[in-house]
Simulated assay, not measured.
Amino acid sequence: MSRLPWERTPDHVRADVEELLGARVAEAVTQPGGYSPGAAARLRLDDGRRAFVKSVGAEPNPDSPTLHRAEARVAAALPPSAPVPRLLGSFDRDGWVTLVFEDVDGAPPREPWDTAELGRVLDALGDLAAAMTPAPIEAPTAAERFGAAFRGWRRLAAAGDPDGLDPWAREHLADLARLETSWETAAAGGTLAHADVRADNILLAPGRVVIVDWPWACLSAPWFDLLTMLPSVRLQGGPPPAEVFAAHPLADATDEGAVTAVLAATAGYFVHSARQPPPPGLPTLRAFQRAQGEIALAWLRDRLE
């Protein structure tokens, strides 16, 4: 995906950011990764300070400003102890939503996953769940946040005989649709989950792991972030998800049926979403979902057989 260069954002976006920061932008370096078609840049100001800015309008993807607005609300409310960048300010003007954060001196994990870096991230997920339990802010439940999206198997079953579906999934489609119906109860909990942890939403900084991009934050079981992250870890060269999940402290004393139900809903979401047309401005998203769906489905099949 091609990010919008900082220089091509509207004049009022750049003016608002410079007024907030109290200095002119001397350099803006676009940051790769992620699935927003807007600008995302590390800024160096003419007084030597740094900041990170992300800004998006309704073109080419009309949903992106809504996600930025949600992230602004969450980032403004998270406590200083949370492992997140500090929000310096945000703007919502003329259809453009802009967020300005402290610049984190870090980088995303390497691909394929490095064992030591993955270990740091997995430890950080445990620390994150502990820090976010009980949830420090009000947020929708996972069921409220994803109830409409996590109906993939039911939608595929309603379609009758979907072409191109994995043969095992086709054979067990009715069972998968029934299993999926219990995910909302299975995922319930009082932990504030990020709900979209992937390598491109992680920064490894000296002495800490920082989790960025929080528009999907919701209340869930403490292991929700771990489970939903692991298909992307495997896709990007990490170990099998079942192996990682079983070895993680967050999996201790989990209800196996609850884990299977949430995994079923996650797999169904990826499989169904990957079959839809690409969202405007996000041409690579469906391929990423398709690959994660294959991994999640294989994990689910192993749990059910």
Rank of each mutant, 00 (worst) to 15 (best):
A58N: 11
E59H: 11
E59W: 10
P60W: 15
N61K: 11
P62A: 14
P62R: 15
D63E: 15
D63C: 09
T66D: 15
R69C: 04
R69V: 05
A70H: 09
R73T: 01
R73A: 08
R73V: 02
A75M: 13
A75I: 03
A77D: 09
A77Q: 07
A77Y: 07
L78Y: 10
P80A: 00
S81R: 14
A82V: 04
A82Y: 10
P83T: 05
V84G: 06
V84W: 03
V84P: 06
P85V: 00
P85Q: 02
P85D: 03
R86K: 12
R86P: 06
L87E: 11
L87S: 05
G89T: 09
G89H: 12
G89N: 13
S90Y: 14
S90H: 15
F91N: 09
R93E: 13
R93I: 00
R93N: 06
D94H: 10
D94Q: 11
G95D: 12
G95Y: 04
G95W: 05
W96S: 06
T98Q: 10
L99K: 06
L99D: 05
L99R: 06
V100N: 10
V100E: 08
F101Q: 06
F101G: 04
F101S: 06
D103T: 00
D103P: 11
V104H: 06
D105Y: 07
D105K: 07
G106P: 03
A107I: 00
A107H: 13
P108Q: 10
P108R: 12
P109S: 11
E111P: 15
E111Q: 15
E111R: 15
E111W: 15
P112Q: 10
P112I: 02
P112N: 08
T115I: 01
A116R: 13
L118K: 04
L118V: 02
G119C: 01
R120S: 01
R120M: 00
V121F: 07
L122H: 08
L122A: 01
D123I: 01
A124H: 02
G126T: 09
D127H: 10
D127F: 02
D127A: 15
D127E: 15
L128N: 11
A129W: 11
A129L: 12
A130E: 14
M132Y: 06
M132G: 05
M132P: 13
T133V: 02
E138Y: 12
E138I: 05
A139C: 08
A139Y: 08
P140D: 04
A142L: 14
A143W: 03
